[in-house]
């Protein structure tokens, strides 16, 4: 496993928060990268490549999550996922 780690905080902007369909989009995107992806809310950190893990965070609109990517393509993964979150997962 590579030691390259990229971390950043992101705010959930879409109305319904990090519900099932956004979680599915996030996980599908995360799985395109070889690096490990972790999502944390408060003290709880989950596997960003698991829909159920991401859903268990129950993050509402306005909530902040910490995105941590570990591996060779961590920067690319971080930037792509951050962009998806900032864009509200394509929702209103």
């Amino acid at each position: 496993m590579g030691s390259n780690t990229v971390t950043g905080d992101q705010t959930i902007v879409n109305e319904l928060g990090l519900h099932a369909r956004p979680a599915s989009k996030l996980v599908a995107l995360a799985n395109k990268f070889s690096c490990e992806v972790f999502i944390a809310k408060g003290e709880t950190e989950v596997n960003g490549k698991s829909i159920l893990g991401v859903l268990m965070l129950a993050c509402p609109k306005g909530g902040t999550i910490r995105l941590r990517c570990v591996g060779e393509d961590a920067q690319e993964a971080h930037d792509a996922i951050a962009e998806l979150i900032r864009g509200g997962f394509g929702e209103a």
Binding site: S24, V27, N31, K49, S50, I51, L52
Partner: peptide, 9 residues
């Protein structure tokens, strides 16, 4: 449904 979401991945 959680079981099926795991099944999908």
């Amino acid at each position: 449904i959680p079981m099926l979401l795991k099944l999908a991945t």
